[in-house]
């Protein structure tokens, strides 16, 4: 709860993510081992469907307060593209 007893709309997110956090989150989203999350990996080689896109948007929003637009998410081609917006 924030000022006046109302909840605070969380615009800033909860803070920074370490590289380890990012890899862990992505391995859960794509359901593969963390060792397989390598920056150059093509998203086309993974299950990069609408659910995965929503999961990445949700993770960025919750874990580091970043808003990824529909246009941005659809331009992403590699794991690196996702890692970049989480910085």
């Amino acid at each position: 709860m924030g000022r006046n007893g109302y909840f605070v709309v969380n615009k800033k997110g909860t803070g920074m993510m370490t590289q380890h956090d990012k890899i862990t989150e992505l391995s859960e989203i794509f359901e593969i081992n963390a060792s397989e999350i390598v920056p150059g990996k093509s998203l086309d080689s993974l299950r990069w469907d609408s659910m995965a896109m929503l999961s990445v948007i949700a993770m960025a929003n919750e874990k580091c307060g970043k808003r990824i637009s529909g246009a941005e998410i659809k331009k992403m081609r590699t794991i690196q593209d996702i890692l970049d917006v989480l910085d």
Partner: peptide
Amino acid sequence: MNGPAIFN
């Protein structure tokens, strides 16, 4: 439906 846009 543009899922990511609706979600945002």
